[in-house]
Amino acid sequence: MPIERNPCVYILASGHYGTTYIGVTSNLMQRLGQHREGVTKGFTSRYTVHRLVHFEMFGDMERAIAREKQLKNWKRPWKINLINGANPEWRDLAVGLGFPPLAPRVRRDGP
C-alpha cells in the first residue's frame, strides 16, 4: 500500500512571540513527533522550538517547497502577522491534532 503524502509547510515557535522555525514535510504528524522527541539534533532541539503555531497544506510538494522558501525570506514582523492572523494566542496547534500539551518552558537565565 502506498504511503499517503500530505505536503505541508509549518511554523514552530519556542513560545508566544518566541524563536520561530519554518519547515516543509510530506508527513506533518511524523515530523512533529520527531521535533518534540528531539530525534534530529539541530536548531529546533537546541532552542526548544516545538510548538506548532501555523501550518498550510498543499496538493503537491513543489508548491509546498516554494511556499517554504517564500516564508523563509520574509521579515520577522511579516511572519508574526501571519501567525497572529489565525492563531493570535500562539496556541500549540499540535494539541488539536492529537499530541499531548508541552510542559511549560523553564528559563535557563533566571526565574
Rank of each mutant, 00 (worst) to 15 (best):
L82P: 03
A94M: 04
S14D: 08
R5L: 13
P88V: 09
G15W: 01
D60H: 10
P2E: 06
L32E: 00
P104A: 15
G42A: 12
Q34Y: 09
G85V: 05
M61R: 06
P111C: 13
D60A: 01
R63N: 15
N84K: 04
G96E: 15
L82F: 07
L97C: 13
I65K: 02
R51W: 05
G96K: 04
S14F: 05
P101H: 08
L71I: 07
I65H: 03
L28Y: 05
R105H: 14
K41T: 15
G98F: 07
T40W: 05
P104L: 04
E62L: 08
P100L: 11
W74M: 14
R36T: 06
A66N: 04
L93P: 01
P7V: 05
T44M: 04
I80R: 07
A94V: 00
R67H: 12
H16C: 11
E89L: 12
G38I: 07
D60C: 10
S26C: 03
K79G: 06
R46V: 13
R5S: 10
A64R: 00
E62G: 09
H16S: 01
R107W: 11
E37D: 15
Y47K: 08
P101S: 06
A103G: 09
H35D: 00
T20M: 12
M57P: 00
S45D: 14
H54P: 03
I65R: 04
G98M: 04
T44V: 14
Y17I: 05
N6T: 13
R63V: 09
L28N: 03
N6Y: 08
P77I: 09
G42E: 12
P2F: 03
I11Q: 01
V53S: 01
P88M: 03
H54A: 13
I83S: 11
W90R: 02
Y21K: 12
G98W: 10
V24M: 10
E56D: 12
M61H: 09
Q70C: 05
R105V: 11
N87P: 02
R105S: 14
K75V: 14
L82C: 10
Y21V: 01
A103M: 11
Q34R: 02
R76F: 13
T20Y: 07
R107V: 10
L102H: 01
E4S: 13
V49P: 08
G96D: 15
H50A: 10
K79L: 15
I80N: 02
F55N: 04
K72S: 12
N6P: 00
G96V: 11
T40I: 12
I80E: 12
H35W: 05
R31L: 08
P104M: 12
G42T: 05
